[in-house]
Design a protein around this nucleic acid. Structure first.
Lengths: 112, 112
DNA sequence: AAATATACATAAATATATTAGGTATTAAAA
DNA sequence: TTTTAATACCTAATATATTTATGTATATTT
């Protein structure tokens, strides 16, 4: 796990990126997918995830659909029309940002 | 300029990285260097910078030296013995984190 | 002479995420 | 078969980093 601070601000773009690729996902699934993709290095806490999902829904970037698996509810989130337009910009920004950060810490020798 | 949120948590490693490379720097110099290195994409605010420098000094990671340029004071910061040991770990962590983030947003085609 | 750049600093407000708690169902292990 | 772990949602109090706004003062450029 990384220092808490590093991860700050990345939660939203991570969520949006996953939803861009997977069409629809539910909260718990997102936490598991991120853990999987990052080999456990990033673990999204639910206290951060759910409020962010609710915020994105309130902002009309995501919409939801409830599905019952037996008696247990799943709340699927997917990008709205509106949301799709916003997302690629946000991902580009993140991508650009990561490059810029690489620029600053320019790893000395290891270019693949 | 990037969304404020993205930059969160990167201030400390940026400062430490610059001080690792440049031996000693003063606050204003750091803001300018970062602006320069990132082509204006990251502008460190003084309200964030100075408290962080003070914190790093309180934590014995940095120490200071005042220099007068005419009547104007400059406060140079440099890594302490202790600080040098901490820094490379922090930079490695940031570097690792950036790679992990790249993993998530994996830019489709453009590998240089 | 006025405006901009250099150089430090702090304080209130904002926003995010952590920590800690809660409910409930289903599957696996003891 | 009872207990534990996993699945699945949620919120509230706390902590903390950063922004925004403000302040002081000197040096340089227009």
């Amino acid at each position: 796990m990384y220092s808490k601070d590093l991860i700050k601000g990345t939660l939203q773009p991570i969520i949006l990126k996953l939803l861009e690729e997977n069409n629809k996902m539910y909260g718990y699934e997102i936490t598991q997918r991120v853990k999987e993709l990052t080999n456990g290095k990033i673990e999204i806490t639910e206290g951060a995830l759910y409020p962010m999902l609710h915020k994105l829904e309130a902002d009309k970037i995501l919409s939801t659909e409830k599905v019952y698996i037996g008696k247990r509810v799943r709340k699927y989130y997917h990008l709205t029309q509106n949301g799709k337009q916003v997302v690629s910009e946000k991902i580009n920004e993140l991508s650009d940002f990561l490059s810029t950060m690489q620029l600053i810490i320019k790893p000395k020798t290891n270019m693949i």
